[in-house]
């Protein structure tokens, strides 16, 4: 297969970027999208050019490192698929493929297609945990949790932190990301103890990072590679209001 690639190139965070066009020949349909980029980079290096920087690690759709905006869709045209799991057989021969980095003020570009997602880290630091010390846990089966609830909590916990939700949102909102963690803990008894503080602090941090606000267009759910439901956003909103209305004023 042959393709024309139009790729965003930007030397460093402050540099002015722009698109460069690369024709690429003899791509195997069995190649993954990132293998196709490896193949391009190999040719660039051998031709004396600087290869395209893009981030990746596990290449099996679970670490959340990769994330490219491909032809107008975060992670490309397939639903429930990360960029690394996308294969070239999903494209048509001769197609022009436009590849851009995630775009959001909270995700500044580092170089080419790599962006800085440390804003997600800071949201997690604000409350993405259950405060329990090592060694003080009760017997694991001492508090039963209904299978239905536990499965739901798993569905929320499946988030890989790739940032596609932000990239897919017309407002660059991080609601789905924050909601996934908040909802996971809000549903299970262990997490309820500090639920109100958690939602309050995580939402505050999210706003401070400069993400946009949710206007319920649900693009995040559509493009989430793990299919995380916007129902969790509603759950987070509910938690947030109840925290605002019911919680005691903190000293």
């Amino acid at each position: 297969m042959d393709f024309t690639l139009k790729i965003w190139r930007q030397e460093h965070a402050k540099a002015k970027g722009g698109f460069k066009t690369y024709p690429l020949k003899d791509v195997s349909p069995e190649m993954s999208f990132l293998e196709m980029l490896d193949y391009l980079n190999m040719q660039l290096i051998e031709g004396g050019d600087v290869p395209v920087t893009f981030e990746h690690d596990c290449r099996e759709g679970i670490c959340g490192t990769c994330g490219l905006y491909i032809n107008g869709r975060p992670h490309g045209p397939m639903r429930n698929t990360t960029t690394c799991e996308l294969h070239m057989r999903e494209f048509t021969d001769g197609e022009t493929i436009v590849i851009e980095p995630w775009r959001a003020s909270a995700f500044p570009v580092i170089k080419d297609l790599a962006v800085d997602r440390s804003s997600f880290e800071r949201i997690m630091h604000a409350g993405g945990f259950i405060s329990t010390n090592t060694g003080c846990a009760p017997e694991a089966n001492s508090s039963p949790i209904s299978k239905h609830i536990s499965d739901k909590a798993f569905d929320a916990a499946a988030c890989i932190g790739c940032g596609a939700c932000v990239a897919a949102c017309k407002n660059s909102s991080a609601m789905l990301f924050a909601a996934a963690k908040i909802a996971q803990y809000a549903m299970i008894p262990q997490g309820k103890v500090e639920g109100k503080e958690r939602v309050d602090q995580m939402v505050q941090q999210m706003d401070a990072e400069g993400f946009g606000f949710c206007s319920n267009t649900y693009g995040c759910e559509f493009d989430c590679p793990k299919g995380i439901s916007v129902d969790f956003i509603a759950l987070m909103n509910r938690e947030f209001f109840s925290a605002k209305v019911c919680s005691q004023k903190r000293q």
Binding site: N71, R73, V98, R103, N171, G212, Y218, G219, D223
Partner: peptide, 14 residues
């Protein structure tokens, strides 16, 4: 929240 816009408009289904 998105100072640099996408070149290719969002095709996400909403």
């Amino acid at each position: 929240a998105r100072p640099v816009k996408y070149h290719k408009a969002l095709k996400t289904e909403t």
